[in-house]
Nucleic acid binder design. Structure first.
Lengths: 348, 348
DNA sequence: CGTCGGTGCTCATACGAATGAGCACCGAAC
DNA sequence: GTTCGGTGCTCATTCGTATGAGCACCGACG
């Protein structure tokens, strides 16, 4: 038996109708359940004809009438599984897929680049590629905010995972609450007796880091803790010498690092000076370091849950275009590790 | 600024046409590049109107005319990332995504179950859900071969990852060459001096395991090696006592386990008897055990490459429906580990 | 016997874009 | 001055399905 080629044009409702001796609309009604006034006998004839022809509705044509496609888009601004961040997007996707499955949606992964260069774009030769889907989840760092603004103005339903600020276009996001998590970590250090902290910033200036800084700053002020970083909000990136010295001599008793990269650098510098973590100095990281598995006190981003929530919100937007489009915050758990301890007795 | 809601019905070509003072077809021609006979001035007017209205083509309508959607489907018969097989499908998807990106395709992940129960099905109330995509990659273990047969008879372009035999429907697959890999492992054992082997089968009876058994059986015969498993082809699943004894007393010097599960059981049983791997007995596994990371001599399934090849083949089928639809074999690398060694001197 | 209410459908059109055919006009060539 | 060829579009139709409106028929009721 050989493959049926050249593929015969698939049967359509009109073919079924001809065989069953009814009109195309009768077929349509029977198929789409609106068969209230079609008697069993006719229905049977139609079903027989369907079986005979192996008729299968064309979903594309169905959708044309303005019905929903029940497709949800997933647009990542970088390849879905960049090696550098293995497991990063995938975890969000896991939650997205779960919720999509539960709500009877399929997903469209927008993997095509657009035009070879310039990264993944939403608009390709003036057309919004996302439009096949009823709405889309966006994730990753967009290289081009104007695109997001345009998308928003178009009224297309979408939700962004992670905070993204675009002037003039308050795009709805699902946001890990880095600010609250940072505050929580400061509180924890405070509870352990730490009163003089240092903040280590990375050189990245995107929204999520701003959130961390804000949360840290608030908590420091609120608890009356002293921050000794060299002007952490506008300050230097990386691990300045002053901070290493301050931690070594007890001027500071704990450090809060924005990213694992900075934390690792700090650890190296402290080890050089013979300073131990956590015996001498406590270090917490404001990032999910579970992949590295080195025991940092850090925070956990509930990626799966965030994915689920994003789909949830997206479906709301799709089903009610007039619904409010606000951002949602999702709490991050502070994860105790092996790098935070009570303050050293002689340094209280 | 508030979200533009209720969303205005998006502009269409006829709206653009009205504003630009031309006909809808002129707009269509300009947009779809067939603008040979439209002068620059008119084109400009049309583009201005497009910009003014924020017009965006409706991909669904486009597709209706029979054009390609440039969507490729990915249908998994189980959720994409079942916890039990974490990283299993994902690796295929990685390759699929890469190739899709390179060829300018987007992916549709068919995640919706169909009707709540009964697993993921291709046909939902008599409609082939895959049809939105130009063609689809199927992966996982289908609960229902009749569905595959129907899909094939329909002439829908699809390719299955992993071998799947359906009577009357020679469905095209991309198949890890388990048979060759099993033979390779037997050859390797033979090269190390092993002459009396045992084969341990799992209780699963799907095609991939048949391939392993066939490859093993061929190699054993070809090399004149003795197989001491209790009738491995029709034989008992799991780890029979006879096999453990044969390995312990030197009747057999090496074991080939179909799955990691069986291998792990064997290891436990041998350890109980004080038999060491690989000093006393060599053990190889005919499965990719890289996830477990316990040093088995095993084989590696080039999942990413398989994904890429599947997309490649699928695109061929889509672009030429008359193309032959055969299966493709992909070689698996035998991966040396720490559980195979030369045969013990006194057991040659 | 006329009318009314149901039943069992059909008709016509919409959805949005693509496209073969063809019309109207213009300048040039014979 | 007629024909010819090219330009610049428009017209009409197609894709496959869904759906509001409505037609024809039948039995029942007044």
């Amino acid at each position: 038996m050989t493959a049926p080629s050249p593929r015969p044009r698939s049967a359509r409702q009109s073919d079924v109708a001809r065989i069953a001796g009814v009109s195309q609309s009768a077929v349509s009604r029977v198929i789409s359940g609106d068969a209230a006034r079609i008697p069993a006998e006719t229905r049977r004839r139609i079903h027989d004809a369907i079986a005979e022809l192996g008729y299968v509705p064309n979903p594309v044509a169905r959708n044309l009438r303005g019905a929903r496609t029940r497709l949800l888009g997933v647009h990542t601004f970088e390849p879905l599984f960049p090696n550098a961040r293995e497991g990063f997007y995938v975890e969000f996707l896991l939650g997205i897929e779960q919720r999509a499955e539960e709500t009877g949606h399929d997903l469209v992964l927008f993997s095509s680049t657009g035009d070879g260069a310039g990264g993944r774009r939403i608009y390709r030769d003036e057309t919004n590629r996302l439009r096949i889907a009823d709405g889309s989840v966006l994730l990753g760092v967009s290289p081009d905010r104007a695109e997001l603004a345009r998308l928003w103005h178009e009224g297309y339903p979408f939700i962004h995972i992670g905070r993204r600020d675009v002037p003039g276009a308050p795009i709805p996001c699902v946001i890990p609450d880095y600010s609250g998590a940072a505050a929580g970590i400061v509180e924890r250090l405070h509870g352990l007796g730490h009163r003089r902290l240092a903040y280590l910033r990375d050189s990245i200036d995107v929204e999520p880091y701003e959130d961390r800084r804000a949360g840290y700053a608030d908590a420091v002020t609120r608890l009356g803790v002293v921050d000794r970083s060299p002007g952490f909000v506008s300050g230097t990136a990386g691990v300045p010498d002053e901070v290493v010295s301050a931690l070594a001599d007890g001027t500071c008793t704990a450090a809060v690092a924005e990213s694992e990269r900075v934390a690792a650098e700090l650890r190296a510098r402290l080890t050089d000076r013979g300073v131990r973590i956590p015996e001498d100095v406590s270090v917490a990281v404001l990032e999910d370091t579970s992949a590295a598995d080195v025991g940092w006190d850090d925070l956990r981003i509930p990626r799966q849950e965030i994915g689920r929530i994003a789909v949830e919100r997206l479906i709301d937007m799709v089903s009610d275009p007039a619904a409010p489009r606000e951002s949602t915050y999702v709490a991050c758990e502070a994860m105790p590790g092996e790098t935070v301890a009570g303050v050293r007795e002689d340094r209280r």
